[in-house]
Write a protein that binds this DNA or RNA. Structure first.
Length: 809
RNA sequence: GCGGAUAUGGCGGAAUUGGCAGACGCGCUAGACUUAGGAUCUAGUGGGAGACCGUGGGGGUUCAAGUCCCUUUAUCCGCACCA
């Protein structure tokens, strides 16, 4: 088959017939299947795109044949850092390079032959999209969900620029190799923590991979405990958060994060120098290192003490980098006897280690003992369990005003400011008189100016652009300036699924009437690397918009699937530097897009992925060749008068209906490799039937046509061509999906395994309808088993219907 | 470090969820057909002469474990400014 012209022919046909275009009249039968849109990083699709979009398109085509009105949109997550870096390197404007990349990707996406609804395409860098991203920002601001505060950024003192974590290599700037430090900037945050509890609890109702739900759960990191107020000798008060209030009597020191606001004030003169040196060092460390439990604990005494509210004891205040300003209160109490990190710390700095919990029932309670137990050395609380003690101690502190119950989340508010050009400008104006003034809705979008300079010299191109920066205050009319920052691209992707069903609305980001019918997304398919960020942000935005009254659903993605990762032939992640990148295009050129798609479906477990291997391609080519040969043969086969349905025909019908049933089941759960395996089995059965002299041609042809229908979602161009060759009316995707005839699957006899003492002995074929007693009779009469059973008494017989019999002697 | 996952023939991968391990395919072996074969068709293919042994290693539960429990090793993914 000349696949090039065939594939072109059918793509043209599909496009003419608007096969992929959603018909809103059928919204009641809608199936919204969404693949994560791609970043237009280069001009070509890589295998990862193919792996995400190809098999998922087969799923969508399968759903279409099952009678759904499918909606499968595609777009581009077009803002982002790489385009800007590329501009700095080459001078090519991000707008130009991005648009060029998108045009190329659209071309290759169309060659894939996926049934995307291009009429709903989105590009996040276009004004008619980012206008609404800005609208979203203003809505969140209006509802108290966007606020400003100081937060550290990676700062390269040499380039005078903010760096992404990715651009920091071993603590140094990737460009100039200077040591990167943390620098505080006032930045915008979204208050995702306000939804922490709901984001956690409503995970339960989602049809998502369990591991993804678990990762989000851990990421949100709920812990319950108390906030306890210590008073410094200076009179300043600060709180610590703890889940182990039961160990409060064991506190031998407290630790503030080096960034804690009180550090400067409380540090004694004598310790100033040491403390400052430690803080400077901390600014260089990244968070992963700081939280490492095996890293040696370091810290500095600040020359000031604090009073433990429960017993009035004075304990030293330290700073240490293992305490993070961003979690809890930025201060912790040190209980060396019952916490490993505190134990290490106390051992190193010679601090007292006071046991206040004992293990029960002879458990090994060597220190540090971090489990719950019985309280000791804590006057009126001795003898309580840890559980009771936590409550009793917090209750006492509540009365004295020095403590409170507190639920803490590891989840932090979402920092959305980026000191960069290529993103959606933050629609806010700063006025000396009026303060922060949101840009009026009528003035949206705040357009990104095109005429900017890209130099790696510090300030972002927007901050230097006077025409952009200088504006009149919308309130007082006085001189004011724009916010020079742009929004994190995760903001753009946190609501794009809401835009697709109403992509051309120029009055609103979306019409609630439309999208409340079209959403939630029925199936979302994309990489597992998004488990904690994108997927959490999208859930948050959905809930926020719901609470503002725009949406009537609580969750954006009802059902979620992660595809795996295709590795290089060496089993390692593909990368240019390793030289193991496999490009899809040569395969598409040589064998066609159906072959590549089918191989991706057959050669891997979809959710696992794995190393690329050329040999697998051959299997697919052979498979399609076999189909085509049989089709050509069948085409000229004249219907005969033989309409018998005997053993061979029954076998063929069994194979056909078994395939219908299994393929249906496997497609539904994205088990594409077994889908193709079942199709190969059916083809083998068809070939076997073809060997017979005396065939029922009509039945043969019908089974083959059913086979082609089952194949169609997986090899769409090829199947259309064969379908047409056999006199079928295109498009095959408008035909009804085959229905399994269960009666063809009923077997009179079944083969069961026979074990003696759980060891496989033999297999016997018995009638499928036998009762347990009858089976026992048959077994005992079986001559193969007689010698095995001779002289032994049967203790027990375990019968698993239609599968196995285990005789215990 | 923390969080999440994975490990099955020479290879990619199956296994109705505790019930015949290795579906389907690649590769390999033999045969058929052919002027020819890196095409096609047919048959075989976990290891071992064998009793038996086999799902990363060790231990356990069970009539029965790839599947459940404990423990251990290796590899991969994410960690909040890559998207």
């Amino acid at each position: 088959m000349d696949f090039k012209s065939v594939e072109q022919k059918w793509r043209t046909y599909w496009s003419k017939e608007k096969l992929g275009v959603f018909n809103p009249k059928n919204t009641d039968k809608k199936y919204y299947c969404l693949e994560m849109f791609s970043y237009p990083s280069s001009s070509k699709l890589h295998l990862g795109h193919w792996y995400n979009y190809g098999p998922t398109d087969s799923f969508v085509r399968y759903k279409k044949m099952k009678g759904y009105e499918v909606f499968q949109p595609m777009g581009f997550d077009a803002f982002g850092l790489p385009a800007e870096n590329y501009a700095i390197k080459t001078g090519i404007h991000p707008d130009d390079s991005t648009k060029q990349n998108i045009a190329n990707m659209e071309q290759t996406l169309s060659e894939m032959g996926a049934m995307f609804d291009w009429t709903a395409e989105i590009k996040t860098c276009e004004e008619d999209y980012y206008k609404w991203t800005q609208w979203l920002f203003l809505k969140l601001y209006e509802n108290g969900l966007a606020y400003r505060k100081n937060a550290p950024v990676n700062w390269c003192p040499n380039c005078k620029t903010v760096l992404a974590n990715e651009q920091v290599v071993n603590g140094a700037c990737e460009r100039c190799n200077s040591t990167v430090i943390k620098k505080d900037l006032t930045q915008w945050f979204f208050k995702i923590t306000e939804y922490a509890e709901e984001l956690l609890t409503s995970l339960n109702g989602l049809d998502w991979p369990e591991k993804t739900k678990l990762m989000q759960k851990n990421w949100i990191g709920k812990s319950t405990g108390g906030e306890i107020e210590f008073t410094a000798e200076s009179g300043d008060k600060f709180k610590v958060f703890t889940t182990r209030a039961d160990t409060l009597f064991g506190v031998s020191y407290v630790v503030l994060a080096p960034e804690h606001p009180l550090v400067n004030k409380l540090t004694s003169k004598a310790q100033k120098k040491a403390v400052q040196a430690y803080i400077d060092e901390t600014l260089k460390a990244n968070e992963i290192d700081r939280l490492s439990t095996t890293r040696e604990k370091t810290g500095v005494y600040i020359g000031h003490n604090a009073i433990n509210p429960v017993n009035g004891k004075s304990v030293p205040i330290y700073i240490s980098d293992y305490v993070l300003a961003s979690y809890g209160t930025g201060a912790v109490m040190g209980v060396p006897a019952h916490d490993e990190r505190d134990f290490d710390f106390a051992t190193k700095y010679g601090l007292p280690i006071n046991r206040v919990v004992k293990g029960v029932n002879n458990v090994n309670d060597d220190l540090p003992f971090c489990e719950d137990g019985i309280i000791v050395n804590s006057p009126e609380f001795d003898g309580l369990t840890s559980e009771e003690g936590r409550k009793a101690i917090i209750n006492k502190l509540v009365q004295s005003g020095a403590g409170a119950y507190k639920t803490n989340y590891r989840l932090r508010d979402w920092l959305v400011s980026r000191q960069r050009y290529w993103g959606a400008p933050i629609p806010v104006i700063h006025c000396d008189k009026c303060g922060i003034v949101p840009v009026p809705y009528n003035d949206l979008p705040v357009k990104l100016p095109y005429d900017v300079e890209f130099t790696p010299d510090g300030e972002s191109p927007l901050a230097k652009h006077e025409g952009f920066m200088n504006v009149k205050c919308p309130v007082c009319g006085g001189p004011a300036h724009r916010d020079p920052d742009t929004l994190d691209t995760f903001v753009c992707s946190s609501w794009y699924f809401l835009r697709y069903p109403d992509a051309h609305n120029s009055k609103m980001p979306f019409n609630p009437k439309v999208i409340n019918k079209m959403l939630p997304v029925d199936k979302y398919v994309g990489g597992a690397e998004h488990a904690c960020m994108h997927l959490l942000y999208a859930r948050f935005i959905t809930k926020a918009l719901r609470d503002m009254g725009y949406l009537t659903f609580d969750e954006p993605f009802k059902s979620l699937v992660h595809q795996g990762i295709i590795l290089g032939p060496d089993g390692l992640r593909m990368s240019k530097s390793k030289g193991n990148v496999i490009a899809p295009d040569p395969y598409v050129d040589k064998y066609g897009s159906d072959v590549l798609r089918l191989y991706l479906m057959f050669g891997f477990s979809y959710t696992e992925g794995g190393p690329w291997n050329d040999d697998g391609i051959k299997a697919i080519i052979k498979f399609l060749d076999r189909i085509e040969r049989l089709a050509i043969k069948l085409k000229d086969m004249k219907a005969n008068k033989n309409v018998q349905v005997e053993k061979d025909e029954k076998d063929l019908l069994y194979a056909t209906n078994y395939a219908i049933k299994q393929v249906d089941k496997d497609m539904e759960v994205f088990s594409f490799n077994t889908t193709v395996a079942r199709l190969m089995e059916l083809l083998n059965a068809l070939y076997k039937y073809d060997l017979l002299d005396n065939k029922n041609v009509k039945l043969f042809k019908n089974c083959f046509k059913t086979f082609i229908q089952l194949l169609a979602p997986c090899a769409p161009h090829f199947a259309e061509e064969i379908w047409e060759m056999l006199g079928g009316k295109p498009s095959i995707f408008n035909t009804e999906y085959p229905v399994c005839d269960e009666s063809a699957l009923v077997r009179d006899e079944v083969e069961v395994a026979v074990q003696i003492n759980s060891k496989m002995k033999t297999r016997i074929t018995i009638s499928a309808t036998l009762t347990e007693d009858e089976i026992k009779e048959v077994i005992l009469a079986d001559e193969k088993l007689a010698p095995e059973l001779a002289g032994k008494s049967i203790k027990k017989m375990i019968i698993v219907p239609k599968r196995l019999i285990n005789i215990i002697v």
